[in-house]
Design a binder for these strands. Structure first.
Lengths: 358, 358
DNA sequence: TTGTAGGCGTTATCAT
DNA sequence: ATGATAACGCCTACAA
């Protein structure tokens, strides 16, 4: 393939700027003496060409290293073959895995993925979506900031297929992928109750309208009333963010409510709570059982070991991708919702309460 | 092989959305009674247009919600305005942050980022790069699998500007971004030595040709010889992978070598080691000091608290992006290497050895 | 079965 | 300063 002779070559080697442009479809046609139409037909497999010329064309294309110019294709076909994925935080491994799942099925279908992170900032989300519209993305998968973001209807108005993640929009119907909210929460509550906990606290992400928090609240109340005949509102801890610091800040409220267990929205928050407890010389699970509703790869790690449902992150991405492909294929189909299971995994952060039930 | 350059188009011919198509430059021109040329000039700011018409055009464009079709632009200008980023693992937060840094400066310059993860699989890396070539990416930032991957020269042959991350290529010169290998390692060694450690172990990623491991080995030997007049080879632990399990597997060798401290390649590996120690009823830092050479956001976390240099991940991405932009602007410039500092952060995982120096 | 030609929306090169 | 117009590379009626 190459001359292995050439050793160290400290400066720009001869051929860097003066490169030959990629071959065009005309080159291929000329190379095997047929028309461009035949080449196109042969390559796309969608036309009527004789087996003989098809082979000739394929051979020539391979030999020349031809591949169609995406720009020309996009211009002619009026589709960019690119799909947008807008997520809250690209540095969060959870979204990385979602992206991976989505990319896998999209690439299979000939699309490539434009990943954009809005970093929990409204104006960035708007910017990313606007950019995707300008890029003429053929579809967008979005985990929106809140359930009434204005950018969502904007996408619909632009005629761009949309799949929502984790939160549906208040008024814009769309395809939608979520995890089962009820199952894991009830499982977690039952797990804690079975261990003997009665004062089970729940953190709720507020501060931004979200259908998820409301739903969880309702489920929690239902369970508590069912089991203990009462709901103590002091056990509900509302918070705006979901970082370490918010977790630490929640500890005083937890202690004041005499909670013996807490269900945190996700594992980062849970780690924050644990850290806050340590500052009060309390520890998990001896003094407080800790359960996170969304795991990342952190949860099973030594030194962490959080009881939490295992989120099917890759599946979420794949499901979303499949939904968007389905809608592109059939724009008028009914909107679909996919609910993925998220079974509880018990680890070291939950244990019976120090003092038995009163 | 299969080499399907394009997928059969599974869609019916009719337009995929019942929505009005985006306005074209001709619409804008018509709207304010000028030629398309003037519109183009006004919008790109690069032509000669009177202030009056420029304003008229800008106004009309805004009103119509016009933005140039990327496909048409790309076709005409022969550049895709897209940049590839190929990383080992998109679910690793470290690479997420690198991606974020790169995206930031690239978007600033009008490019968008195509993120591809090769998941430590050779054939995937090849596929991703091939795809980027077909996409006509204007440049590629790549953290290669090893220092002699064949795909790297392939990019150069295609005339696509390239920036390498973390590892340079054996024979293909290129722009290159890395962290300072020497500084953090020496700092770490000095830190441990100052605490009283003499038997300091070092893990080295082998199994794949990498300039990094060799360099670290040399630095380590230099320090040990300098300080203790000798290098005990049993303190060098070589391993192929860098996951939790590899860390656990390294523990017997560490104990056999009577190490009182170990410098692990990264924090995941370090966590594995810690887990393995716990199985022997040993703990960090009482029985063994633990230092990781590359941190993620895990390192400072409660329950983890690893002493490690802080990797300037975002900076890495930004530096790479700037390098590639510079090369696009001036293809014949000399290749540049950027070395970023990575200062040590001391946390709870390092302490004086249980028994003083012999 | 194969070839010809028009046009997708831009930018760039010319005239004017 | 402005306006026609020719590519850019591809797909696809339609003609042969």
């Amino acid at each position: 393939m190459e001359d292995h002779q050439r050793k160290a070559c400290p400066l720009p080697p001869p051929a860097l700027s003066p490169t030959v442009p990629p071959p065009t479809i005309a080159d291929v046609a000329r190379h095997c003496g047929v028309s461009v139409a035949s080449v196109s037909n042969a390559l796309s497999g969608t036309g009527r060409v004789s087996e003989k010329t098809r082979e000739r064309v394929l051979e020539a294309a391979r030999k020349l290293g031809y591949s169609a110019s995406p720009a020309a294709r996009a211009l002619r076909m009026q589709r960019s073959w690119s799909m947008g994925l807008v997520i809250p935080d690209i540095a969060n491994p959870m979204f990385g895995q979602i992206a991976r799942g989505a990319a896998e099925v999209l690439e299979e279908a000939g699309y490539h993925l434009l990943v954009a992170s809005h970093d929990a900032r409204h104006e960035r989300q708007a910017g990313q979506i606007r950019n995707l519209v300008q890029q003429r993305a053929d579809g967008v998968i979005l985990q929106p900031f809140s359930s009434l973001d204005e950018e969502v209807p904007m996408l619909a108005r632009a005629g761009i297929p949309l799949v929502l993640l984790a939160r549906r929009h208040i008024e814009q119907p769309s395809d939608y992928v979520t995890i089962d909210l009820r199952g894991p929460l009830l499982e977690g509550l039952a797990h804690l109750a079975a261990l003997g906990h009665q004062r089970i606290a729940l953190t709720l992400l507020g501060g931004r309208p979200s259908t998820t928090a409301d739903e969880r609240f309702a489920i929690y109340c239902g369970f508590m009333r069912d089991r203990f005949d009462t709901v103590d509102e002091t056990l509900i801890i509302r918070m705006a963010h979901t970082d370490l610091e918010s977790g630490r800040a929640a500890v005083p409220a937890l202690l004041a409510a005499r909670a013996t267990a807490v269900i945190a929205a996700n594992d980062i928050l849970a780690l924050g709570i644990r850290d806050g407890l340590r500052a009060s010389a309390l520890s998990v699970p001896q003094d407080l059982s800790l359960l996170a509703l969304e795991d990342t790869f952190l949860s099973p790690l030594p030194g962490i070991e959080l009881t939490s449902p295992s989120l099917p992150k890759q599946q979420i991405g794949m499901a979303a991708a499949r939904l968007i492909l389905a809608r592109i294929a059939e724009p008028s189909r009914a909107f679909e919702t996919i609910v993925l299971p998220s079974p509880l995994v018990v680890r070291g952060s939950t244990a019976p309460p120090r003092v038995g039930p009163t």
